[in-house]
Amino acid sequence: EQHESQKPDTKSLVRQMHEAYLKHFHMNKAKARVFLTGKTSTPPFVIHDMDTLQHAERKLHTQLLGNVASGDASSLQEREVEARLFLFCQYASVETVTELTEFAKAVPGFAALDLNDQVTLLKYGVYEALFALLASCMNKDGLLVARGGGFITREFLKSLRKPFSDMMEPKFQFAMRFNALELDDSDLALFVAAIICCGDRPGLSDVSHIERIQESIIHALRLQLLSNHPDNALLFPKLLQKLADLRQLVTEHAELVQEINKTEDASLHPLLQEIYRDMY
């Protein structure tokens, strides 16, 4: 394995994925930890109740909602708090899906795949990847939002009315277990690539091509973990287990979103609609 890790193609794959990750994701674990540990001159604004949420909406409007049309924005304040938070989540998700798409294209071999297979890999992979990345923005007390401008407390999210109160708690529980593995951004880059390039998504046409890409990423991930975490020999199998946990997390999340979509007056962004439709 010592010898294997010296192979230039694996080393360059590790480096390439790390660079693409830093290039395409505006937030990463190193940046998030600076905000979460208070080592910044501009600490995030803490959102812990309705008043602080309203204050944050005025203060962080662009970071929370991106370039939402001004008409939508002006009617937003009339909507209930749960619907507004659901909308912020959606905009953050759309942004991350866009970043993940660019990151996926940087995985060697991905762009050469049949376009239908690229669509399928993203459809099934983006939410698993999103929740893995979200863990970097979480600690036991809350979640960093609006590019580090805000911090929503876990208690406030739990205090929302049902079914919205059930939205984030499972992600916190996953994040606490996942963060205990102490991965850094160079590990996460390969982990996210492994999530996306997964040969057993439903309806893939060129499975063997995807499995070859997957194999090279998993191989690189194993060697990366051995060299970056030499004292934790079980990290690689533990991380493979997290892939299964993420799949379960997404299945439950998709069910909850379908329920909200059916029973609440909360419209779903067209990109997210595409992803959820006929998913599981």
Partner: peptide
């Protein structure tokens, strides 16, 4: 199939866009 792309027009467009 063709319908997969049609059902995922935005994803498809994101994939075909160059780096912005």
């Amino acid at each position: 199939s063709h319908t997969l792309q049609e059902k995922h027009k935005i994803l498809h467009k994101l994939l075909q866009n160059g780096n912005t």
